[in-house]
Write a protein that binds this DNA or RNA. Structure first.
Length: 613
RNA sequence: CGGGGCGUGGCGCAGCUUGGUAGCGCGGGUGCUUUGGGAGCACUAGGUCGCAGGUUCGAAUCCUGUCGCCCCGACCA
């Protein structure tokens, strides 16, 4: 989508020579130095004219691909009533504790939130508009600013508190229709990222606070990425570490046939214990005492057992506690707020005797919680299969400076239900093929698609009439792309020591014409002539008509990353100009008269993106 | 929220330890020279040293508080 030509003298181009102190990663520095963004507050940025052109180009690609799937563009309010969020059950979780929704009260004292996402609004609309299976499926999308009060905004546009997102919501009569659209979105997303010139990989993901069943993230691979992704070398498995499953290495067998008590003074950690007695960490069961806090009701102490050489995956744990909450076992406690290790000070504040930290065993009794002031008086006991499958193991004896050697689950009491709680690690064997191993890389999450199921439609009573005449809840999917984040991710993936190297499809300008010496009338006239003809051909061309020296103009052109540069210099009198490709640095001399036709031939396919149309 | 760091012309920084009339580079303006990879010379404008309070004859500098920004973490006792 061409956006029009422009002269640098009128562009308000303000580039910086030094790296700004506020930026840490390359893409953030380059966007600031190139005059693309300015920080207004922590995590809040002004998108300057150059970046706005990039964002419009990305948006145009997104629109094109969404529209061809039959999705409908719309625009939903950012200001949303609390009542909708209370009906879906997310108001407390999104506003209390670590909640990320900016919220406020209006003059009548009514509570409102600034939309961090739009499931509630769209589902309420669906309840109103969608009445019959004949209207389904339908997919609505929008591109607009989202607001999230992030715990820690960082890296410029990577994690902002106000950012631009494309979000789409689909509605279906049944699960198979949902799955069909989900697959169509998967394909559309791959085309979008490819057309934007991004190298992105799709990985299995945790669906997090949005909820639902299947979900997949699209990651732009980059060192600066915030997420760790694990992939198999055969390319058949990829997942965010939060979600990844793997086969743990086999434990070193512990030769024992009975349980003995061992004196372990000052041996509180797995390392100290292993070093002092020659145990392998895989022979030890470690026990974590954690506290889950809820929006309402008493906090729930957790006793989590893992094999000593394994790490807890906090996301899996939170999901486990969340699904336990939704079963009958729990009293009305509202949404899960957070899970943190219990400290000795917290134990004392509950009026309880100190817990045997450093010597905890999985058989720690509920009696140690008796009389707690505002905690549940019994543990929720969880254990990873790596721990429950050990025949004999080492663990804390629940008394200071004592451990058990050769303990077994039978002897300790009831065996906890095995539940995957461990973090998959690079090097672990893969579940789909144990001869494959997981490799790690870092990624920037630019897209995420979910099969939501009927979670929101049930909560908000969004039903439709089936062919048989029954009222049923709608099936839903949702699909997001971080448009502003994608722009920065593209810089992270496409730059060199001189600056940005935009892919043509999302570059603010496709071509820059640089007269080396603007005071030379021949050069100036030829540059103007080329500018005019490219403009007439619909190219997003920039003319550097400033009275700067050539070196300054070259440096700026490289910094802001225009993919093609035409230098009108010494050869102008003979009608010769130089064509330079930004990404490769390759140069060639051409006759100015032939240039427009030749360059258009290269440019037009590049404009459409790397993917064949 | 816990830990660390930083607030000094538009930008990047020094000065602070040991209190004594605020500096450097880049950028801006004017003029002359220069003109294919961030030019040179000359002149010039621009700062309540984040804010508030305190100590002192005197505070950018020392003390207290506060606001803002950046980074790390929020995981086995």
């Amino acid at each position: 989508m061409p956006l029009g030509a422009m002269r640098v003298s009128r562009l308000l181009l303000v580039t910086l020579r030094d790296d700004p102190a506020e930026a840490d990663i390359t893409s953030h520095k380059l966007l600031l130095r190139g005059g693309y963004i300015r920080r207004v507050a922590s995590g809040v940025y002004a998108y300057l004219p150059l970046l706005w052109r990039v964002l419009q180009k990305i948006s145009a690609i997104v629109r094109d691909e969404m529209d061809r799937t039959g999705a409908l563009e719309t625009l939903l309010p950012q200001l949303q009533p609390a009542e909708l969020w209370q009906r879906s059950g997310r108001w407390a979780g999104y506003t209390d504790g670590e909640g990320i929704m900016f919220h406020l009260e209006d003059r009548q004292g009514r509570q409102l939130g600034l939309g961090p996402t739009h499931e509630e609004v769209i589902t309420a609309l669906a309840a109103d508009l969608l009445r019959s299976y004949r209207q389904l499926p339908v997919n609505l999308y929008q591109i607009q600013s989202k607001f999230r009060d992030e715990i820690r905004p960082r890296f410029g546009l990577m994690r902002g508190r106000e950012f631009i997102m494309k979000d789409a919501y689909s509605f279906h009569a049944d699960q198979s229709s949902l799955q069909e659209t989900y697959a169509v979105m998967d394909g559309a997303y791959r085309r979008i990222f490819s057309r934007c010139g991004l190298n992105a990989v799709a990985v299995e993901a945790d669906s997090g606070a949005i909820g639902g069943s299947a979900s997949q993230e699209f990651m732009v691979t980059a060192e600066a990425g915030e997420d760790l992704i694990l992939t198999s070398s055969d390319g058949l498995y990829g997942a965010n570490q939060e979600r990844a499953v793997s086969i743990a290495p086999p434990p070193v067998p512990l030769v024992a046939n009975q349980s003995l008590t061992l004196a372990t003074p000052d041996q509180k950690s797995i390392e100290e214990l292993s070093a002092a007695h020659g145990f392998d960490p895989s022979q030890i069961v470690k026990v974590l005492v954690l506290l889950a806090r809820f929006a309402e009701g008493p906090a729930q102490p957790l006793l989590v057992s893992l094999r000593g050489d394994q790490q807890l995956n906090p996301v899996k744990l939170a999901n486990a506690v969340g699904s336990w909450l939704s079963t009958a076992a729990s009293p009305g406690t509202g949404a899960l707020l957070d899970i943190n290790p219990i400290t000795p000070a917290q134990v004392a504040a509950q009026g309880l005797a100190p817990l045997p930290f450093g010597s905890l065993g999985p058989h720690l009794g509920d009696a140690s919680l008796a009389g707690a002031r505002d905690w549940q008086a019994r543990f929720l006991r969880l254990a990873d299969p790596t721990a429950t499958s050990l025949e004999r193991f080492v663990c804390g004896a629940n008394s200071p400076d004592r451990h058990l050697v050769g303990a077994s689950w039978d002897e300790l009491g009831e065996q906890p239900t095995p539940l995957d709680l461990r973090a998959a690690q690079p090097g672990d064997a893969c579940v789909h093929d144990p001869s494959q191993h997981l490799e790690s890389s870092r990624g920037i999450e630019v897209g995420h698609i979910f099969q939501l199921g009927r979670k929101y439609s049930e909560a908000l009573e969004a039903t439709f009439t089936t062919e048989a005449g029954n009222q049923e809840a709608l099936w839903m999917g949702c699909y997001g792309i971080g448009v502003s984040r994608l722009a920065q991710a593209a810089v992270e993936q496409h730059h060199d020591s001189h600056g940005i190297c935009w892919p043509v499809s999302i570059a603010p300008f496709e071509l820059i014409v640089v007269p080396a010496n603007i005071d030379d009338a021949t050069q100036r006239q030829l540059a103007e002539q080329l500018y005019t003809s490219f403009q007439a051909a619909g190219v997003d061309v920039l003319l550097d008509d400033r009275t700067e020296r050539a070196g300054v103009k070259f440096k700026d052109a490289d910094l802001i990353g225009i993919p093609w540069r035409i230098v009108v210099g010494r050869g102008a009198a003979e009608g010769q100009v130089e064509l330079v490709e930004r990404s490769s640095g390759s140069k060639r001399e051409l006759a100015a008269s032939e240039l427009p036709a030749q360059l258009l031939e290269i440019l037009l396919p590049q404009r459409r993106g790397l993917l064949a149309p």
